[in-house]
Structures are given as C-alpha cells and as structure tokens.
Design a protein around this nucleic acid. Structure first.
Lengths: 399, 399
DNA sequence: CGCTTATGTTAGGCATGTTAACAAACAAAA
DNA sequence: TTTTGTTTGTTAACATGCCTAACATAAGCG
C-alpha cells in the first residue's frame, strides 16, 4: 500500500516511464507491431499522449519504427515494434529427456533456438540436466549478435516443484542442483518455474485456452501434474505444490489407507500398461508395446484396447472431477502423452459432470513446445516489468 | 482495459471522488476511526491532500468528526469515522436451522441484530427459509432509525451453491427460491454468497486466518464444504462450485466406482455416528447420542471414542491432503460442528503432510456467527464500491 | 488542383498530486 | 506565566500527466 497513491517520483529511484508509455510498450510487446492510432484506440489515449509516450519509448530505444501502414484513405501511419534496447530473453525447458532453449525478443521474435536430447531419462532434476543447461546456455551465448540488444532475463522450466524464496521450504525441492554446473549471470532476473505451470501459461496465450482467465491444464503421461490458472494468474501455492495432483489421497475408500503419490503411480503410463498387458488375452492379437500403440489400437477399433482406454478415461475423469470439486475451473486442458488422446474427450467431461460439476475439456495441441513457450512468456513478462520499473537504467546491461 | 488510463471524468458519469478521497474512505471503513495524520502516514499522502480528501468526504457526509486525539506533544488531531451518508448494510445468514440478521454501518458498528430459529431443519434452501428471511428483513426495516443513514446493500448467505449471473447455469442452483416470499428493494446491490465462503471471509478478517492472503476454510459437520481464499480473493469457480469438496471423487480406488457426493455422506456426521454405534462394544459404556457426545467422551480419554475420533481425523486428513495437493493453500482452518474439535489438530496436519505437503491447520473460533459476519463484510465492501464509483449520488437512497 | 480524410504536433487547460511556508494549538520546560 | 519545540492543519506555488482544440502534414480521389 505504501506510496501506492503518490504522484511524485521516488527520490531514490531514477525517473521512470509515464503510465501511458508503459501501457503502450506493454501492448506492443503483447500484441506485436502496431500503429499509434491502433494503440491509442485500444488504450483510449489521445494523439498527443501517444506522441509523448512514443517519444519517451523511442528515445530510450524501447520501440522503433519498423514501417508504415496505409489505410484506404488519408495519411499513412507509422508502424512501431519493440526496439533494440528492449532486448531479449533466454528461455530454457530443462526437461527430463530434452533441454530446449529459445532466445527471443520480448515481443516473441525468435532469435535462436536449440534442442539437446539427454542421453538417458532422468525422473528428477539432477546434475546431468544442470550440465546440459550450462552447455546450451553457453552455446546460445556464443551465437549472440549485437542486434539482439541486451539480455533482459533468463527463464528456466524445471520438472520439479519450484519454491519461491520467502514461501515454503526451498531446500526440500532440490532446485539448487540446477546450479551445480550452471551459473547464471548475476544482476539478471532469473525465473524458475515448474514445467507444467509453464505449459499452462503456453495454453493460455497460444493454445486451446487462449484468453481464458480460469482453467486447469492437466498433464497425464508418465507422471501427473496440473497447472492452475485462476483470474489470469498461476496458482503456485505456499510450497509451490499447487497442482501436484500426483499427491491426491489415493486409494480413498472406507477401510483403505492412502499412500503418498500413489495415484501418480496408478494413473501413470507404466502402471497403465502393466494393467493392460496383465489382462491381455491370447485372441486379442499382438499386445501393444507402449501407451501410444495402445491408443492407436483403440483408435482403430480394437475392442480390448478400447475397453482399456475407456477404463483409463474413467479414472482420469474421476481425477478431473476431484479437481473440479475443489476449484471449479470451468475449463480443463488435457496434455501429456496420454492426456492428449482424443479418445479421452467424450468420457472425461461426462464423468466429471456426473461426479461433480460441468466442465469443458479440450486436448492440448501445442505438443512438446508448450513448456519452452510458457517459460519464454514468463521470462518476457518479467523482463518487461523490470524495464518498466526502472526505465532509465539501460547502460549497464550485457551485450 | 478501456479508459483505464484516462484522467478526465467520463462525461456520462457524475463527478466521482478523487483517488485519495476513495483511499481515505476505504481505510476509515476498514480500520475504524482514525486521525488525518494516521491515515496520511498509512497511505503516504501529504497533509494538503489529506485536507482536500477529508473536505470532499465531509461535504458529502461520508465521514464525520467524532472526537479528538491528543498525542504526547503538540496540537491534537481530529478523529474521523464513516459518516451518516455512508449508510448501513443488512446482512442475513439464511441458514438451514437459523436465520441470523445483522444491521451495521460500513465500518462495522452494529446497529441491530436478530436471530430466528427455524421450526425444523432444512437441508436445502426452500420456501420456509425465504419466508423467514422476508419476515426478519421486514422486522429490521421497522426498527430502522434515521441516524442509520441510507441502506446501501443487502447481503444474504445461502447454504447452497451460488452462481453469479453470466457464469455457469443459474437455474441449477434453485437460488431463485429465496425470492418466493422475499422481495429485495430494487435499485439496491444484493449480494448472494455461499455460506461457507462467507465463513471463510470472516476467518480472514476476524478469525484465525486474520490477514492471510491464502488459505482454505474447511467445514466438517453434517455436510462438507470449503471456502477457498487465494491472493486475498474468494475463489468461486465457473459454476460457483469451487470448494464443493463433498463432490470429490469417492470411493477412489482400483476397481471401485466413485459416486456423486459420496464422500459427503461418508464423512458427514450421520454416517460417522452410524459407523461408531455399529462398532460400539458392550463393555465400552453408554454409547454417545451424537457427535458432540462422542468427542466429549474422547476428550475425557474414553478409549473406544478416541479410536473412532482418530479414524475420523485420518479420513479428514486424507481429504485435506487432497485439497493441499490441488491448491497448496499453506493454511487450513477447520470449522463446523466436528471440524472445530481440537482432537483433530494433531492428526490432520500430520496426515496431510505425509500424503502431500506441509500445511498449518487451525480450528475456527468464530462459532455460529462466522457466516453472518462474513456476508456483512462482503455487503459492506460492495456498498463501499458503489459509493466510490458514483460518489455524488446521495439523494435517492431510502431512509 | 483542391477536397476529404487520417495522422501527428503545438498550445492551453485541468485534475490531482506535490513541497514550502505559515498559522494554530498544545505539553513541557524555564 | 512565559517561552519553546512539536504536531496539526491551511495556503500558495508548482509539477505531472493527461485532456481538448486547433493547426500542420500527408495521403487518395474526383
């Protein structure tokens, strides 16, 4: 609350941008190149104010003229976009099988992209991932061109619970292991985020949840995870454990004792295939080698596979029903190796509605890029907030 | 976003209060009487600005001088509070056994209070409740004094899911039945809210969750319910079903089919007592007549009662674990007839931490007033927003 | 070549805050 | 009782950030 109303520039901080200039920059970053009249109409700003705002931003190099736009009549308008000094961000998806890296401007122009396949699968983040991140980051550094402008933020998506300093117990997450080989540049915002949360962010901005303020992204594959978006904001939880639906109490029934993480092992792909193969009958043909084969068989009409898929869909429907009973998001996006199967689509919402309340269910279409796109977005937002809060500080950044 | 930046008064709307005047009024309403220097320090406003703001508010009757405050040194400061024209609100807890009504000023000075015990228990809202609400509201109307100022809002807490117009399916909640006998005055904000959500609000402002931005209030008694507060805001959900934890999938175990609302019947007081009495052995003495007797026996050290309570606490712990796995609130407040028992306190957080993640668990202490205090707060907030958005419209209100 | 239309700038005004200086009211010290 | 320093409140002058109105510029079109 302190100083929230104050109109005068804080004496300690450098003079910052006007509110209108900040808003203009935000829309340029969020919506891409635009003319002054377009932004003015969107933000309800007068032409003189647009002039002043653009002047401020152009003088700082935060925006640049990139062309002209001719309407059907009248003078043509200048087209602006985020400028050189707005800089760029590095986004890393430090996954358990791949390390994906994207370098891009704040307004999402891809500057560089790398993918590194890890030699072996790692169920938890460990030193090998740290090494790969360090190498990829170094390699990206080597490619850097002056035209990219200063590096403004680094975002890293981790396949682990992420605890923000000040809330919960950071030590329990082992997230420090990331830094055994990777040393981020100092004085640069570093954003760590859970990979499922990142995928949820990507769904909100670029996927099937585009523009939705409230939804849950539920990932079903080898493991279970949920990214929860309420009121347009990620719900992270005190321990960074919001969405850790692998820890929903299971089994939960009279006389049974639940065990930690049990539903994750039960609904995970490995246990699913074990159940399916254990019940596979001789006359059903060749058994599927993995989950994707199972779903392919089912899609082709194979009776026994269909039955297995239906049963799995019902289990997932019950899980979704539980989430709906707790937060009622209105929309659930299913992702992950198993979750994206269209075969789930009729069953899951039907079961969720029967057990709890109606919910729209969609399959994710972003594929394996979701996570890196999400962390890129978060890094860009963080970079922008940094620029907006101390707009004058443009010199000491690393080129 | 439209017009969010505009500085000029919208031509359609009447001239409104300045931002500083609004902020001053808000703190007076929220924190009770205060002097100008106090508010100025809190909001970081200069003395001239405080002068102007107080002038505005006093001219409209929104604040009034109520005394003076002498520090240890120097001139004494005038003490202000919400004034006559700020008016009052009526808050109703339309419960299934009682109708509780409070009339109070926006800054929580109680003007009038009534309680009506319904002749019989109603598990769902029906016409009898509507009749009682109508009668209590009329009776309160009869008591109204000019000194109360205008009525600014009516809040009603309902023991049912509440759907806001525009989201979800209003028809499915039967909330219209409230209006079969009760006709609210037109042109007056009417706030409907679920009673458990109201209790959560009360816990946040007056109870054991005071000042907490994130927590879950979980009510355990005849029925199950949760009020979820994240980022200082109630989470309501698309269908108003957030917190309807009675619909968590149950039983949830391999080979079992969950049924809608089953966990509510299993964890509810009736089923608990059935289980307890069914297993009550001859040599254990007189069986408890109801849940409170059971918990009293357990508190006195009765072995069999203790065992039953422990088992129930474990079931509740599993439920809490599920909620923590989904939203990780960091704090859970237990309420309701069974939920407030201190006997639950060791077991529930221990089980939640074992199954999912650490969470602080506290017992509610607000008792049966929680709901009406919560809806009172919501109504007062709504009333204040109304005043702030069209500050000049003070004449057409009903005295 | 003017006419219409859209874009951009200049000039002036207003709302809402600030700081600086002063006046008033009070307790405690002289 | 007077003086002194402190706190409260007001007045005056000014800063910021937006606005509207009017003008200048640049395009298509008859």
């Amino acid at each position: 609350m302190k100083a929230a109303l104050s109109n005068h520039p804080s004496p300690a901080l450098r003079p910052s941008l006007t509110a209108s200039a900040q808003a203009v920059f935000r829309t340029l970053v969020a919506d891409g190149p635009a003319t002054r009249p377009q932004i003015g109409a969107l933000l309800d700003l007068s032409r003189p104010t647009m002039s002043a705002a653009m002047g401020e931003l152009e003088r700082l190099g935060f925006v640049e003229k990139v062309g002209e736009s001719q309407g059907s009549l009248g003078r043509k308008a200048a087209l602006y976009r985020a400028g050189h000094e707005a800089g760029h961000v590095v986004a890393v998806d430090a996954g358990s099988t791949h390390v994906r890296l994207r370098v891009s401007t704040l307004d999402r122009r891809l500057l560089h992209s790398r993918t590194y396949r890890l030699p072996s699968n790692h169920k938890v983040m460990d030193e090998e991932i740290s090494l790969a991140v360090a190498e990829e980051f170094e390699a990206a550094n080597a490619e850097r061109e002056p035209a990219w402008g200063p590096l403004r933020a680094i975002g890293i998506a981790l396949p682990a619970r992420v605890v923000r300093p000040g809330s919960g117990d950071t030590a329990s997450t082992r997230q420090d292991r990331l830094f055994t080989h990777f040393t981020p540049p100092p004085d640069l915002p570093l954003i760590l985020e859970n990979n499922v949360n990142c995928a949820a962010v990507a769904e909100r901005f670029y996927g099937v949840a585009r523009g939705e303020e409230d939804f849950a992204y539920i990932q079903i594959g080898l493991k279970l995870g949920m990214g929860l978006m309420l009121g347009g904001r990620l719900v992270r939880g005190r321990n960074g454990a919001a969405g850790e639906i692998g820890h929903i109490a299971f089994p939960l029934a009279p006389g049974l004792s639940p065990a930690a993480g049990e539903i994750e092992t039960y609904l995970g792909t490995e246990a699913l295939m074990e159940r399916v193969l254990g019940a596979w009958s001789e006359d059903a043909g060749a058994a599927p080698a993995d989950a994707s084969e199972l779903f392919a068989l089912a899609a082709a009409g194979h009776v026994q596979a269909l039955d297995a898929v239906r049963r799995h869909a019902e289990d997932i429907g019950a899980l979704v029903a539980t989430c709906v009973a707790v937060v009622d998001p209105g929309l659930v996006v299913l992702g992950g190796g198993v979750g994206t199967s269209p075969l789930l689509l009729p069953t899951v919402p039907e079961l969720a509605a029967r057990l709890s309340y109606p919910v729209t269910v969609r399959s994710s279409t972003l594929g394996s890029d979701a996570t890196v796109l999400g962390i890129e977005r978060l890094a860009a937002e963080q970079a922008m907030e940094g620029l907006m809060s101390d707009g004058a500080r443009t010199e000491n950044s690393s080129h």
